[in-house]
Amino acid sequence: MEKGIKIPDWLKNTGAPCSCCSIGRGKGFLEKNLEAIASFLKEVLEPEEFANRRGLLQAIDPRAKLLGMTLLITAAAMLKNMPALAGFIALAAALAAVSKITASALLKRVWLVLFFTFVLVLPTAFNFVIAGDPMVTLFSVNHHALYISRQGLEGMAILILRVAAMVSLVSLFMLSTSYPDVFRAIRSFPVPRIFIAALAMCFRYIMVLIKIAEESHLARKARTIKPSTVKEGGGWLAKRIWLIMERSLETAESVYLAMTARGFTGEVKTITQFEMKGRDYAWIGFAIFVLLLAVQL
């Protein structure tokens, strides 16, 4: 082995992992950022597949769908009891089934926030946060007791169910709608056109900037032998962020010039004709009905 290639000493000395902290082992910011970029791109591309399937939600006009979903989310926000919230989750599951959206795709978007909520509210089940009628007493010494209270458990369940219902509904909208349609849908809401145009353009250019970020991180990773120090790493990242910022300002200038060359004067014009079909009316009617029910409950 020693015959052909002689590894220079400086290359062998890659810096032993520090035993007291995580420097030199595990993932550094480069790897984490590359992973974040990869999972972001995957997340962007995945919904397109479901949006192209033939299902109930895909058949509804995106504008009617957004309005209906907003009403349903508002209804879920107003509910005050567990059975009604559970009913909403059942509704979301039914909508997913008839829209050919798999449970795994839906869960992937919902589980993280649900898990976070669960961990966050877990202590509220105990009497030291919300006192109430004891359900399960863990221990009791003299007058001090630790128990799970009915009120605490109920409050915890209500929040988790509500978050599950609301996040599932938003996710269903996103999974069943392609990106251009999402922006087309928002356009019919009373939001200034400038914001919508900037929003759609922003989404497009996130991809461009992410590409620059990915390339610069990959280039750095390819040239990395030993983990950089915090100062080096921070300095490098600051330069990359500055580069991305400069590119974005340059691109904004070029895009503006290109738009001006094509006759843009600052006023945004769109070709949107909103024609509601029977099923769109039915969908909005259904959402209003659910909202009215929720107000009563």
């Binding site: 461009v208 900037l209 904004a252 200038e253 503006y256």
Partner: peptide, 13 residues
């Protein structure tokens, strides 16, 4: 008029 591309790009940033 520059606002739209500039805001979009800075939002992306």
């Amino acid at each position: 008029a520059k606002q739209i591309p500039l805001l979009a790009l800075s939002a992306a940033f």
